[in-house]
Design a binder for these strands. Structure first.
Lengths: 341, 341
DNA sequence: CATCACAATGTAAACGTTTACCTAAATTAT
DNA sequence: ATAATTTAGGTAAACGTTTACATTGTGATG
């Protein structure tokens, strides 16, 4: 007997499809006898309800889509794992879209909720995954969506409020900069991520705040735009080293960048932390295994992922989301890549 | 105007739904005028065909599911990225299942193709994602599936042949062991992954082969079972160090393990490579940035991912897959963690 | 005993597509 | 000019569920 549908099963049992459906999905709405009979038969025949049929009828897919610039980024993949696990616990499946930062790609994935392939979106980009034309149109209805880690550009929002799960990037930036300042560092170079990204700008703001609190002048010549990658960390560090004046510390806005930085410093026989202190951001799993072990800011990866899906599901279910933006606690993790000057 | 369906669009244009569908999906089957009229109207009204409706009718979801023990494993996430990208190019979406190695979880995800949520499966486990009961049943029909990196346990297969995309793990294991032997190492400890996993066993076999070719006896006391993680690399190395006799080299079957190993050696003031040589496996992106940069075996991550989906789509499309198992070339990458004794 | 409320099940419509089949018109072949 | 073929488009069924509504039976209530 090949694959079997609800009709066949109903016929076999001599009952209606309605009863089968009820016995399986709303067991409390049928008699005990019926429930048992159907469930046994379902198991026995290997009946598996066709999700497409159900989705079509209920207009619910039980899928969520997560839109992310790079699935293989270590920090991201940690959050992704958490997202997948909580979604799965809640009966949802997760579709991943890797956009490589390409706008068209983001929009393509955003479209999947309008084609009813998913019920909602978790987005790691600072752009909404919809075309400007759509966003401007009056008949555009924002689907369930929550932003992870990156705040949206305010101009896109146009008064709309999208839930956000993140750490307090300015506080975190301020804190780790303060750590360096407390150690006596005065010339602190910064390797940023994409300068347009809110997380980068917020962390930079934190850095400036710390400087000001320490009574120091901000020196724009010390900030170097990079990317959240190993390669960028390495190459940008080379840039820094080619400057006439060498900083006593380098603040990287991402651990991968910091690890790339560490590498290049070692290549150039500059020892960390005795010659230069280095800090990162994220506390990816490799950070503590590097040598020297990296001082960094830990983000609560698992919590971020979990909260993202919980809020998203609330929005999908039409529950009002009390707290539109969730700020999770970060933590300064001091290891061996920093020392007093 | 809110969301619009094919019927409304057809009514607006005063034509049948069939024409709309054809104009959009089989443009060559309608007149130029009709095609343009429909396409314009579709764009204008923002019509997005409901995928569930289409899937139900066509019995195709254009989804594939990838089942993986840990999404955040660095090697895996590289393959995943490649999978996602090629799938996306071919018009398929990717559902991810993170199983944490739990059998029930694997089975749950495997079930998704029978509930018509996906058309096929890419599996990173050495187990088939189906219950034994199902596998034994005569009416069980194997859905489109390809295995990535891990060969299936032969007992599960029962004569079935499942496409596999991998490197030649025994050759690779042999090669990297030979590298150490050529450097004069005689006492080579091994940190394996899960001893049940075919990749581990194959690599171990390669190690034994190399030993034999060098005229050396295999010493089981030198193999330590670990896991493909940083933590396991670290803790297992501690074990090795507690043995009376210290090996001159450690062969790790995964880069994360090797990095954990490097860490613990440094903690114990054993310098690599002068005191002990260390090698890994996979060439994850961090390998070359570590200090010392890790000697390892590079796997063609992108190719593996691409081939997996291409073969899978062929199977889905019913094309006969000429080459059931694809062996992709690996490459020994010699860096700074190994040296002659 | 008649009425009512309720529980259990059945009937059939609806979800939004695609496509086999049919018809009419236009083109080509003879 | 007629028959044969092709082309363009329409009609309606089908995909597999869920669920509003209708029906039946059963025990409780007056």
């Amino acid at each position: 007997m090949a694959d079997i549908g609800i009709k066949q099963l109903a016929k076999i049992l001599g009952i209606s499809t309605a009863s089968v459906s009820r016995a399986l999905n709303n067991p409390e709405r049928v008699s005990d006898a019926m429930r048992k009979r159907v469930q046994d038969a379902a198991k026995q025949t290997g009946y598996r309800p066709n999700k497409m049929g159900a989705s079509l009828r209920t207009a619910k897919t039980k899928n969520i889509i997560v839109i992310i610039p790079d699935i293989s980024d270590t920090f991201n993949s940690g959050v992704i794992r958490s997202i997948e696990r909580t979604a799965s616990d809640r009966g949802y499946s997760v579709l991943f879209g890797d956009t490589q930062g390409i706008r068209e790609s983001e929009i393509g994935y955003g479209d999947m909720v309008r084609t009813r392939q998913a019920d909602g979106i978790i987005c790691f980009s600072h752009n909404l995954p919809f075309s400007d034309a759509d966003l401007d149109s009056d008949n555009f209805k924002m689907p369930p969506i929550v932003n992870s880690c990156e705040q949206l550009q305010s101009l896109q929002l146009a008064g709309r409020s999208i839930p956000l799960v993140t750490i307090d990037n300015v506080a975190a930036g301020r804190e780790i900069a303060k750590h360096l300042l407390d150690l006596g560092h005065r010339e602190i170079a910064v390797i940023t991520g994409d300068i347009d990204s809110p997380s980068t700008q917020q962390r930079l703001l934190g850095y400036k705040l710390a400087l000001k609190e320490a009574g120091l002048e901000f020196n724009p010549a010390l900030v170097f735009e990079g990317e959240y990658t190993l390669e960028a960390g390495s190459s940008t560090t080379l840039e820094i080293l080619s400057e006439p004046q060498r900083p006593s510390a380098i603040l990287c806005m991402c651990d991968e960048t910091a690890l790339g930085c560490l590498y290049t410093l070692k290549e150039n026989n500059i020892s960390v932390p005795s010659d230069i202190s280095v800090v990162g951001f994220d506390d990816i799993k490799f950070a503590r295994y590097f040598s020297p072990a990296l001082t960094t800011v830990a983000q609560p990866v698992d919590d971020i992922g979990r909260q993202c899906v919980e809020i998203l599901l609330d929005v999908i279910d039409g529950k009002s989301v009390a707290q539109k933006t969730v700020i999770l606690p970060h933590k300064l993790v001091i290891r061996d890549s920093t020392q007093a000057i």
